[in-house]
Design a protein around this nucleic acid. Structure first.
Lengths: 341, 341
DNA sequence: ACGGTTTGCTAACACGATTCAGTAACGCGC
DNA sequence: GCGCGTTACTGAATCGTGTTAGCAAACCGT
């Protein structure tokens, strides 16, 4: 029942000044010269009355809101939430809020989601996907500053922030190369998606740079599931000259690989080395042995999205329209040294 | 640069009526008799001009906003995000938004988070925790309707929504009992927390109901990590008369249990049966064999929170101040029939 | 033809801020 | 004691919508 609504007018009356003055003081506008004593008095009474600014009124009057919109496939993926996490934290630091709207492949729905966000007077928009890919941006999204996270549009019109898949693949292969492995298998994600293309290219480049030859018979197609990792590993281990290490397209594949390896009576991180990708926090560090993998920097993606958006809203010129964020390796215990170099 | 701001006044002028009329028509207020033809005309011109209501202005004028605040420990836990997911979906259905503010054990910070949310004119507040426990509610939270999710306050003053830990523990033990197991081990979470207390009590009740005697030597203390599951399982399997089934306090413990079992050359879901708890989506269904577990209904918790909040905002009387949400079993392949009944 | 009801609207204030334009009082040099 | 600049403010308009009160015209029964 505490219908408390202390307004600026109340503070003004109590302090014996005008609303304008109160506004200036509380917003810290220094250009109008108001003596320290008055400032103090106003701040004091505001505190005493328990004054709380009304964000809606402020937004209306100043025509700039303190929130951004985030459109994401929240329903489908555990990853989406990491982006939210990062974006939320970055926004919060500047006193901004995130309004989250769900996306679901249906373009009509996406349009509606954006429309609702625009109604709320969001100052900018982030469109994020749960897996790295190309999207078509809802038409109406262009009426405010907009950045793409973990995805990109056809023409590269909008600034976009994506993980460095190539660098991640490179790092993964390099870990194995530096551990002395020369015979390395690879179980893929679905082929054709940016993650697979980038990671595989990075892997090949790293091997080339380390003077290791690689032929495609060591590539086993997978689909990102633990099952495909299990079967893929069986295939690799049944080869005439089986690899001593496997670069798995993601952590779940690695999980399946572990099972296949253990089933053969071999030891992960000893007989066979494994590197994963993604660094799923409730998976990788809890596997036995703990999985060496490459982290997908979702939180950083979200944070970068917000700070880029901030820049755009401030009107700063954007130099890089396409930003990639590094995928840092997480060294744990699933990779063994092999032979001598 | 599309500084588009078509206002109601614009629509009114274009349609040749007053702003009031436009407001009535667009809000579907039927009490004022406006003929279908005029309604049609106004809707039409609104659409043509691309009119988009200004939520800030609406909030200001009507004194009721279309958003709720959600305070949660977003930074620390993968679970928190499931609550967000559920709450977000439930809110979205009613055209509402969620403003998310981070919580971090520091009461001062929490107070600030709530304060910021109140500034935004949230119509209600949800306070959610990542693990089931008692909290002290920030003072200022009481100025709007407020519900607690996955937690509760000392006096039980505020309505609270928590998972049915007891029922979950009961279901877990019942699965094992019905599969014919009479010799059942239990690896615990940290002792003293509601999850552990409830699950263990439920388990014991189920066993009693099925005429199975249980003695506490079969309880091995764990701490929720895979490591504790691994070692706990070793302890249990080294007993003189080892159990044929283990109820693990959570899925990560189960993960460790799997490793310990396999290491002994035994098979999960054949020689030893395992039931977990939590149903972590990127873990349980991907283990080999797939883990039978009890789901922690985070999304439902979030949804229930929002709908309860909706009721409170509508002013409906709340009958149940303490709601528990069931933890449904997820039957997969880690439990084998044992002996005969 | 006249009072009363219904139909179809509109005027005007409110909401709680921001912000521009202005002004009264004061000090100061001359 | 006049002009000018600074200090310390204030008045009033504005933002886009919700909402109450009310009005003119049409209709209707008698």
């Amino acid at each position: 029942m505490s219908q408390q609504s202390v307004t600026m007018a109340d503070v003004a009356k109590a302090a014996g000044v005008s609303r304008t003055t109160v506004s200036f003081v509380l917003n810290g506008r220094m250009e109008s010269s108001i003596p320290e004593t008055t400032r103090e008095r106003i701040n004091q009474t505001a505190r005493e009355l328990g004054y709380r600014p009304n964000a809606a009124a402020r937004t209306l009057a100043s025509k700039r809101s303190s929130w951004f919109g985030l459109v994401t496939e929240i329903a489908t993926s555990p990853f989406a939430t990491d982006v939210i996490k990062g974006a939320q934290q970055a926004a919060w630091k500047d006193g901004n809020f995130l309004l989250i709207a769900p996306s679901d492949d249906d373009p009509g729905m996406d349009n509606l989601a954006v429309e609702k966000l625009l109604e709320q007077q969001v100052g900018g928009l982030i469109i994020a996907t749960s897996w790295h890919r190309q999207i078509t941006v809802p038409e109406n999204a262009k009426s405010v500053p907009c950045v793409l996270v973990n995805c990109f549009d056809a023409g590269g019109q909008l600034p976009s922030i994506v993980p460095d898949e190539f660098g991640g693949g490179y790092a993964a292969a390099e870990i194995l190369a530096k551990a002395g492995h020369t015979s390395i298998g690879h179980i893929t994600l679905k082929t054709g998606i940016p993650a697979q293309i980038g990671r595989q290219a990075g892997m090949k480049q790293a091997l080339r740079d380390h003077g290791i030859e690689f032929d495609d018979s060591r590539i086993v197609p997978g689909d990102g599931t633990a099952d495909s990792g299990y079967h893929g590993t069986q295939t690799l281990l049944s080869q005439l000259d089986p690899p001593t290490a496997i670069f798995c397209g993601n952590d779940r594949i690695a999980m399946g690989a572990y099972d296949a390896i253990k089933e053969r009576g071999l030891q992960v991180g000893k007989d066979i080395s494994i590197v994963g990708f993604d660094d799923q926090e409730i998976l990788a560090p809890h596997m036995r042995p703990k999985l060496t993998t490459i982290a997908l920097p979702f939180e950083e993606l979200g944070m970068a999205g917000v700070s880029l958006l901030n820049q755009m809203v401030e009107g700063s010129p954007i130099e890089n329209r396409q930003i990639t964020i590094g995928c840092p390796p997480r060294i744990r215990s699933s990779v063994a040294m092999h032979g001598r170099r």
